[in-house]
Every structure is written in structure tokens, then in C-alpha cells.
Computed example of a mutant assay.
Amino acid sequence: MTRPNRRLVLAALLAASLVTFEPLTAKLPLAAATVVKYQLQYWDIPGRTGPIYVENINDAGQIVGYYKPTPTADARGFLYDPRLSTTQAFDFEALIGGAGLPPGWSLSVARDINNHGMILGQMSSTDPVTGKSLVWPFLLDTTAEDLQIAPLVLPEQITFCKAYAINDNGDTLCTYLDPEASKFRNIFFNPFVHETPILLDPEVLSYHLSNPTDGSPAMVGGMMGGSYPLGTTAYWAVPELGVQTYTTMAAFTSVSDMNDAGHFCGVYANRPMRMITLPPTTFAYGTVARAINNADDVVIEGGYVYRNETGLTLLKNLLSGSRTDLSTWGKATRTKCNLLTERQANTNHARIGGTQEFVANGVTTIRPFLLTPIVVKR
């Protein structure tokens, strides 16, 4: 991977623009006789009876995460690619035949996937001597001719490390167990650029990674000063420039996601929120704002989407699909919309992903879904 020119942006300008930058978004006019709806597609992993967790999505609609084949089984990573199958996701380890996986390890989590098809995940094992759990991050290029994982090469003192995020430049965000401090510390690391990881502020409770496409250095953000996942101080940093910015919040805040401008979404004062400038904008419906894109669209648990052009909208009113699927959507006891892409050029709307929970006879089942914007006649 070619190293981008990351230091053309002055630290002072970058720090000053963290919360106020308004991204430009292409807005294509649609014919008056048409309207944009979301095509509902349920999908799953064949034979799964345990829980499933969708972690991230790229702009092509590829979704990664992890699941348990049965309620008591160990976690396994998966890949959902609507170009391979619209209804079926694939066990990640089985898909690549375990290529590159060290003996005794399993691919337990596929954590993130960037727009180049590069997956950041983690593999797991057990120390044969101590019996302690072992976790290590890996990369896999889904566009390569030979699919095989490549464990990240980290300093020797790191023996337990979890994956968080990867952007289109190959920057990764991970957390490792510091044996001396007996606590986790976060690291920023690009294996194509850096010789060693950059250690991040140990007091920050959660991290999110930006995806710059203009050659500027990536930004991380989160909260600090409370009890995870809540905090009292919003935090932004540019690890490669040594820039850190803090903003004191008037109420406990939880951050679920961050876009490239450093705008947050999450919970503020017990309401779903979007933070572009202070104070954050809160919403009257839903529970948690789970994801935000560069147009500042937000998806909210409870089945809502917020767009500047249309305000807060219940997704149920915008769905297109089979009669059976639409009926199923309305029966969910919980709708967790936690994945959001950038807006598509043909519709000026973003894909949305997540899971729904259904309770019957005291048993909860989970169904993952993908909503794809389409143009239909009124």
C-alpha cells in the first residue's frame, strides 16, 4: 500500500475544525414522480441457533461481525456480501479454509471492513500452560487471489490484543492488555507505514477512527472521565501529529460512532444525540444513536433515521419488500440499527444494517438485516 502524504494538514487547523467542519455531500435530484425507499433484506448464517452481532459495514454493503453456531459455542467471525448472496452470510474461517491461521487458533471475530475489502479481525486460542485466553488481531484482503489471514506484527511485550477498527488507508485501532498496569491501552497502528504502534491516552474509555481520503492523518475520538461507556469529556486526537483536543460535557455522554469531521453520535442526558457543535442535538424517539456518516445522517435504535433534509423518520414507513418480510419487521420487540454507509450517488441515501429481536414463548431470536435505498414510483 502506498503511504499517503499525511502531514500536509497543519495540526492547528485540524484541531480547530474537529467539531465545526460541515462535509459536502452530493445531492442528486430525483424525479417528482419517484420516491426513495429502503429495500428490506433479511439474511443469516445457515444453521445458526446462537446469537449474532453485526460489527461494521462498508459502502459496498459488505458486513462483518461474529456469531455463535449454538448458544454455548465459541464465537466465530462471519462475512456477509450481498454480491455473493443476498440471503446468506459465510463463516469466515470456513470461507478461507483457515489459510494463514496458526495451529490451535480460531477466527473468532471479524471486526471491521474498509472500502478496499480489507478486514480487521481477531483470532483466539488458549494458552496450553496457563489456560488463559489468547486474542490477537489479523488482517485479510478479500480482493487477493489467495485468501489468507496475516496476524499483525506487534512488539513482544504485547501478548493479548483486540481489534477495533480499520480505515481505507490501512490505519488500525486496537487495544492491548498492559501487564504492568493490569489495564487495557489503545494503540494506533498502520502496518504498511509504522514500525511500531502509537500508544494512545490510557484514560480514554472508547475510541472511534476516522477515514480520511485526502491524504490527511486519521483522527480518533471517544469519551473519558466516567465509567465505560459513559464519560464527561469528549476527546479527539490525531496520533501521528500528537494533537489532542478535549471538550467538557454538561452531562454524562456515551459515544457510539464518529465521522471524518469528528462529529459524534450516541447518548446525551439519557437521549439519543448527534454532536456537531455544543450542546449536542438530542432526539425525542429511540434509545441510542448508533451510527453517523459524513452527511451527518444518524441511525437510531428503535428503527429511526435522521437526515438534515427530512428530520427524524420511522424506517417502518419507508420500507419496501415482500409482504412477509414487511410483516416480520413490524413484529420485532427490538430494532437495533447500528450500521450506516455513506450516501449512494444514485439515491443520495445510505445503506442501513442491524439486527431485530423477536420474543416468542420466552425465547429470543435475532435476525440480521440490510436496508438498501432504491428509487420507486410514487
Rank of each mutant, 00 (worst) to 15 (best):
Y67I: 01
W43M: 00
T341Q: 09
S227C: 06
I300E: 02
P69E: 13
W329Q: 07
P151W: 08
S322V: 09
L107E: 12
L199T: 12
L30V: 14
Y268P: 05
L139G: 09
D257L: 04
L199F: 15
Q62G: 04
N293S: 07
T175D: 12
V255Q: 05
A250Y: 12
A250S: 15
A250I: 10
N348H: 14
M224Q: 13
E357Q: 15
R185W: 06
P151D: 07
N169P: 01
D260H: 08
P197L: 04
G225L: 05
V375C: 07
T20R: 10
C265N: 03
L139M: 01
L314P: 00
V375R: 01
T20V: 11
P102V: 07
N308F: 12
P202T: 00
L154T: 04
R111I: 02
V54W: 03
F138N: 06
A345G: 10
L339Y: 11
L278I: 11
R367C: 01
I96W: 00
E55I: 00
E240P: 02
I276Y: 13
S182K: 14
R76F: 07
M1Q: 08
S327R: 14
L13S: 12
D91K: 11
L230A: 14
T328M: 13
V19Q: 14
F21C: 12
L278H: 13
F369V: 03
P239K: 05
I57F: 08
M219L: 02
L241F: 06
S210D: 10
V363A: 00
D201S: 02
A89T: 00
T130F: 03
G104N: 07
T130H: 09
Y268R: 04
C265P: 05
D81R: 05
